[in-house]
Write a protein that binds this DNA or RNA. Structure first.
Length: 280
DNA sequence: ATGGCCGCGCGTCGCGGA
């Protein structure tokens, strides 16, 4: 009954948050809740500045896709969790895809790879930093819709190919009103619009499951809190970071949790990590 | 009370974030 743990975390600048990331990974280890695979978003650094060495010293291989100032995503995998034949930076990440195929994009928002962990079939991991969308009238929203449309198409083909598929990241979509601290105040805004939520439903129709809702959760569970207005202290947040899994993985899930601990630290990211556990 | 906080860049304010 050996466990795999996958986490997603929007770190809001890896340069600033590397100490938190390392601290958090260590804390998980100490609690016997070691993370095997991590998807990061909002790196805000180019690949030449990615802390490959520090993360390798912490026991992880990295697959970054960064850019200056904005966006940027990465996958990390624990070296010791990899199948023997893949315990090498060259073979840790297989069948890598950077950004959505056939979708021309300046913004670095999607990283995909197949990962072979010990004693379990390979897992297809998709890590995304979905566009924010600003407001439904904006050009940025139109871009978000185009991005989501392209992603949906890609997911459909990936699900045909990979029975063990996991899609995680900062979706910038609160799927339901229970994922919003004050649904009335958010009516008509991005993150909650019917158009964005329809994409989330369509991902579910493709066979992906919101793993968080497979389990009992505290009411008002969120993954992001605004820095302003004492958002975290008032628990005025949103649940916009998600881990979706294919049917074959769904059967194996044992828990999905938001870890609010690092949100309480000094100079935190505005997002908390979400951790999914499933059996091998 | 419609703001308030962060991180970034050729920067000392404006933009983007959600």
């Amino acid at each position: 009954m050996s466990m795999i743990r996958v986490a997603t975390w929007n770190v809001n600048s890896l340069k600033v948050r590397l100490p938190h990331l390392l601290q958090w990974l260590k804390l998980c280890d100490e609690n016997q809740q070691s993370i095997d695979i991590i998807g990061l978003q909002e790196l805000k650094i180019t690949d030449d500045k990615f802390p490959t060495k520090e993360l390798e010293q912490a026991g992880f291989y990295s697959l970054p896709l960064g850019q200056k100032t904005y966006n940027g995503v990465a996958l990390l995998v624990r070296k010791s969790s990899l199948a023997q034949l893949h315990q090498d930076p060259e073979t840790a990440f297989l069948q890598v895809q950077k950004n959505i195929p056939n979708f021309i994009d300046e913004q670095q928002r999607l990283i995909v790879s197949t990962i072979h962990l010990k004693e379990t079939p390979p897992i297809r991991i998709i890590c995304g930093y979905f566009p924010n969308g600003q407001s439904p009238e904006s050009d940025k929203f139109a871009y978000k819709i185009r991005w989501l449309t392209a992603l949906k198409k890609y997911l459909a083909t990936q699900l045909q190919q990979y029975p063990r598929l996991l899609l995680m990241g900062d979706f910038n979509i609160a799927p339901e009103d229970q994922d919003v601290h004050d649904p009335k105040a958010w009516v008509g805004q991005n993150l909650v619009s019917p158009e964005e939520r329809a994409f989330f439903s369509q991902f579910q129709e493709l066979g992906l499951v919101d793993s968080f809702r497979l389990f009992d959760q505290e009411p008002k569970s969120f993954s992001w809190w605004d820095y302003r207005m004492m958002g975290f202290r008032r628990n005025a947040g949103m649940r916009i970071d998600h881990v979706m899994v294919s049917q074959e993985l769904k059967e194996r899930c044992t828990s999905c949790k938001v870890d609010k601990v690092p949100r309480k630290w000094e100079q935190p990211s505005d997002h908390a990590p979400v951790i999914l556990s499933f059996t091998k």
